Simulated scan of single mutants.
Amino acid sequence: MNMNCIAIDDEPLALQLLKSYIEKIDFLQLENLFTDGLQGKEYLENHPVDLLFLDIQMPDITGIQLFSSLKEKPLVIFTTAFSNYAAEGFNLDAVDYLVKPFHFERFEKAVNKAKELQEFRLNKTKENDFLFVKYDYQWNKIYFNDIVLIEALDDYIKIYQKDTHPILIHMSMKAIMEKLPESLFLRVHRSYIVSIDKIKSWNKNSIQISDQEITISNTYQKQVQEVLESRLK
C-alpha cells in the first residue's frame, strides 16, 4: 500500500532532509514540499493526501493552527525543534512527534506506524483482530485476544490484558465498545466490559473472569444471559 504525502516546514534545509528520508521509504510518494504554511494549507484543501509532515513553529500560521483548520485531516507527523508542543500535538491525534534533529531510524519508525494506521482505516469495515488506542503519547496496537476486561474510571478506561500491565486510556466506554466486535466482548455493567472467551464461570448476578468477580448489573442481566446461553447451544 502506497501513501502520498507532503511536507511543510519554513526551513529549507529541514525540508530537504525530510525529502531525502521520504525517498528512502518504498511506500511513500512525495507530492509536494512547502516552506510557506498558508500555501501548504491551500494545497491540502484541494489535494487530499494520506500523510502530512508538518512543522509547528512557522510564520503566519503555526502547524497546530493549520492542522486544526483542515476539514479533511490526513494522518500527521509533527516535526519541530520544540519538544514542549508534544502534548498539544498528540491531542490532535498525531501519529507521532519528531523532535529535530532526528535520525532516519526514528523517522522510519514513525512512518511505519502511519502505514499501520492507514491500513487499519482502510480495513476497518472488515473483521480485524486488533485495534489501535492512544497512550504514552502514541498509537499502539492491541490484539482483541489479549484483552481480558475493560473497566471505566471517570473519563478514562483501564484495559486489562493477559501477561502484561493494565493500560489507562482517555476514552469512554461507549467509544471503546463501538470498536470491539460484539462476538468477542460483552458489556455486563456500566463500569465493565468483559472478553467472552476469558469468562471462567457465571450466574445470574456475577461473572468470574481471571481472578476477579464482576457484578452483572440489572440493566445488562437479560442481554448477558441471552448471549451466554446462546453459547451453550
Rank of each mutant, 00 (worst) to 15 (best):
N4K: 11
N4A: 07
C5S: 09
I6G: 03
A7I: 04
D9S: 02
E11H: 02
P12R: 00
A14D: 09
L15G: 14
Q16R: 11
K19F: 03
K19V: 03
E23K: 13
I25H: 07
I25P: 02
D26V: 12
D26I: 09
F27A: 09
F27T: 13
L28N: 13
L30K: 10
E31S: 10
N32V: 01
N32D: 13
T35G: 04
L38N: 05
Q39E: 13
Q39F: 14
G40D: 02
K41I: 14
E42I: 12
E42W: 01
E42P: 01
Y43S: 03
Y43M: 06
E45W: 02
E45R: 04
H47P: 02
P48V: 01
P48I: 01
V49H: 04
L51N: 08
L52H: 07
L52W: 13
L52D: 12
F53S: 09
Q57C: 00
Q57K: 01
D60G: 00
T62Q: 03
G63Y: 01
I64L: 10
I64V: 04
Q65M: 02
L66M: 06
L66T: 01
F67P: 05
S68N: 07
S68Y: 04
L70K: 10
K71I: 13
K71V: 08
E72N: 11
P74A: 14
P74K: 04
P74F: 10
L75W: 01
V76E: 04
I77D: 07
F78K: 03
T79G: 03
T80K: 06
F82Q: 08
F82A: 03
N84G: 11
N84A: 11
N84W: 10
Y85S: 11
A87G: 02
A87E: 14
E88G: 08
E88M: 15
G89A: 10
F90H: 15
N91I: 07
N91D: 15
N91C: 08
D93W: 08
D93V: 05
A94L: 05
V95R: 02
D96Q: 06
D96Y: 04
D96P: 03
Y97A: 08
K100N: 06
P101D: 09
P101N: 15
F102V: 12
F102T: 06
F107L: 10
E108P: 01
E108L: 06
E108F: 07
E108S: 12
K109L: 10
K109C: 07
A110Y: 08
A110C: 05
V111D: 08
V111K: 07
N112G: 02
N112K: 14
N112H: 15
A114W: 14
K115N: 15
E116M: 15
Q118G: 02
F120S: 13
F120R: 12
T125E: 15
K126W: 10
K126F: 14
E127I: 10
N128C: 04
V133N: 08
K134W: 01
K134D: 05
K134R: 13
D136Y: 12
D136I: 09
D136C: 06
D136W: 05
D136A: 14
Y137W: 03
Q138H: 12
W139H: 09
F144G: 10
